Computed example of a mutant assay.
Amino acid sequence: MLVLHGGRSEGLEAPPPWNLPGARMRLFFPSLARATAGQSVLLCRVRYRCRGWNGEREDASRDARWALGELARTVGELPVVVVGHSMGGRAALRVAGEPAVRGVVALAPWCPEGEPVGQLAGRRVVVLHGDRDRVTDPEASRRLLIRARQAGAETRFVPMRGGDHAMLRRRSDWHRTVAEEVAGMLGDAASG
């Protein structure tokens, strides 16, 4: 499992050693560990080189691809589920076409119009988005999933009623749902 935190649209500086987006995603680790107990699951997180997406540089997706390569190099070709929030959700969706990736769980992802979806074909893609999100657009997530389904992805949109972008409102619902989705994807990958 590869976990990607959020960031900014622009920012070439390195994230500080302790940053809120990274801490926010670490809060998911206990529920993910409980949901996958008894399975041989490696839980990894990416520390980006830059704070931002940075336009065509796509720094977050480049770092995620590098991490997937390092996983393959160090532990072999294993099925991977990528979990990402906000900018990390965008990066998770972008790297879904990598051979090891079986599925993506994107949390309040940043989905600009025209975002590519071809790489999602044959993948399971679940998007959770709060209806009180004022940073990223839940409707943009829905539109991306419609296009992804047309491209051959298995998609599901999970509305998080009362949920905000920081995933603090109804936090236990976010954690439970993410853990269930990841466990289901990893279980499907192991039996497939």
Score class of each variant (00 low, 15 high):
L4P: 06
H5Y: 08
G6A: 03
G11Y: 07
L12H: 15
A14T: 02
P21W: 00
G22V: 01
F28C: 08
F29R: 09
P30T: 04
A33Y: 01
A35H: 03
T36P: 07
A37T: 15
G38W: 06
Q39M: 14
Q39C: 02
Y48V: 05
C50P: 09
W53M: 01
W53N: 02
N54A: 05
A60H: 01
A60D: 08
S61A: 10
S61W: 00
A64R: 04
A64G: 01
W66H: 11
W66D: 13
G69R: 10
L71I: 09
R73G: 10
G76A: 10
G76K: 11
E77N: 15
P79G: 09
V80H: 11
V80N: 08
V81D: 01
S86G: 15
R90E: 13
A91E: 01
E98I: 00
E98N: 04
P99K: 06
A100L: 10
A106C: 08
E113K: 14
E113Y: 06
E115C: 04
G118S: 14
R124A: 06
V125G: 00
D131Q: 09
R132L: 08
T136D: 05
T136Q: 10
T136A: 12
D137R: 05
P138V: 04
S141G: 08
L144W: 04
L144D: 04
L144K: 00
L145S: 12
I146H: 13
R147A: 07
A148K: 10
G152E: 12
P159F: 14
M160V: 14
G162A: 12
D164G: 02
D164P: 03
M167D: 07
L168R: 13
R170E: 15
R171N: 04
R171E: 10
W174N: 10
R176C: 11
R176N: 11
R176V: 07
T177R: 08
V178Q: 10
A179C: 09
A183N: 11
M185V: 11
M185Y: 02
S191R: 15
